[in-house]
């Protein structure tokens, strides 16, 4: 029972980060109908922006988090202006290749600039054990999951309750109609990409703090799983994407706890593929290209 609770906790913590990354994919896809392959590496860029700010400016927690948001948000803005907007309305393959190119550039650029190996992260917050004994929980885990939950709640609020959030859903369903009713689709696209990037950057900083390191190839770890979560949930309901991401985290943690960590990804992807086989549009439905 202790093992179960421990793994449930661990799973929800890792799953909450998957959820933030997956939501970034979903937000950009529903508004721009583009799979942003650069998204996981924008996440990684945010992690390093936080690291650099922590080393060179201040290791104050808020400074590091803000740097993560700004760094990733700026890359998102550049991606939208330089790649996504010029390629809008062109063949979907061109946009896919464009974002893939940016992903490779970011990964290898960061590896060349910083290091191809994990780099130590500044200690912006102390690592305090909150629970010890049969179930363990640290302050950084709490911070990590709190940040993710705040982001998820914030996005939910934005999309459901605000004027631009409504426009986001309107574009997702019928982009032409939204523009004919006064929505500047370019502007909402830009907001969506920057928002998805900035929240990825913040989540990345909290992951960096939690594990004490940043890595130029960390995007691969989170990107594929988060992308698959979006496919399995379907992109129609963002809350669905969150639930599936949390569930994936828990499944992974359970496999690690009860069987072996080497089986973790195999089982997780097996479950996701089985679901997709029976529900190709995802559990909660999808907008298509």
């Amino acid at each position: 029972m202790d093992l179960f609770l421990q793994q449930l906790l661990n799973g929800l913590i890792i799953g909450s980060t998957y959820a933030v990354v997956a939501l970034g994919f979903a937000l950009v896809f529903t508004v721009l109908r583009v799979i942003n392959f650069a998204h996981p590496d924008i996440f990684m860029t945010g992690m390093f922006a936080g690291l650099l700010a922590g080393v060179h400016i201040s290791d104050n927690f808020l400074v590091v988090v803000a740097a993560g948001a700004l760094g990733a948000g700026a890359v998102g803005l550049a991606l939208e202006r330089a790649v996504l907007r010029p390629l809008r309305g062109k063949d979907i393959l061109m946009t896919l290749l464009g974002t893939l190119g940016v992903a490779i550039m970011l990964q290898n650029g960061m590896a060349a600039l910083m290091s191809p190996d994990p780099v130590a992260y500044p200690q912006a917050l102390p690592q305090i054990p909150l629970l010890t004994g049969t179930i363990s929980l640290s302050s950084l885990q709490v911070v990590n999951v709190t940040i993710s939950v705040l982001i998820l709640a914030g996005v939910s609020y934005y999309v459901r309750m605000t004027r631009y959030g409504r426009a986001t859903r309107a574009i997702a369903e019928r982009p032409d109609l939204a523009s004919a009713f006064g929505v500047d689709v370019n502007r909402v696209s830009q907001i969506s990409v920057v928002l998805a990037s900035a929240m990825g950057g913040v989540a990345a900083v909290s992951v960096g703090l939690l594990y004490g390191s940043a890595w130029a190839f960390v995007g691969l770890l989170y990107g594929l799983k988060a992308f698959t979560c979006m496919l399995v949930a379907g992109n129609r309901y963002f809350e669905g994407v969150m639930v599936v991401s949390l569930a994936l985290g828990v499944v992974e943690a359970m496999v690690t706890g009860y069987f072996s960590s080497s089986l973790r990804d195999a089982v997780a992807f097996f479950v996701l593929i089985v679901i997709l086989y029976f529900r190709p549009n995802g559990l909660f439905g999808s907008y298509t290209v």
Partner: peptide, 23 residues
């Protein structure tokens, strides 16, 4: 662009209604 045309005072009742069905 379409959003500017709309802001100028033209609105639309599209063929087949075209509501945002999920809203």
């Amino acid at each position: 662009p379409p959003h500017r045309i709309h802001q100028g005072g033209i609105s639309w009742v599209p063929e087949g209604r075209q509501l945002w069905g999920t809203l």
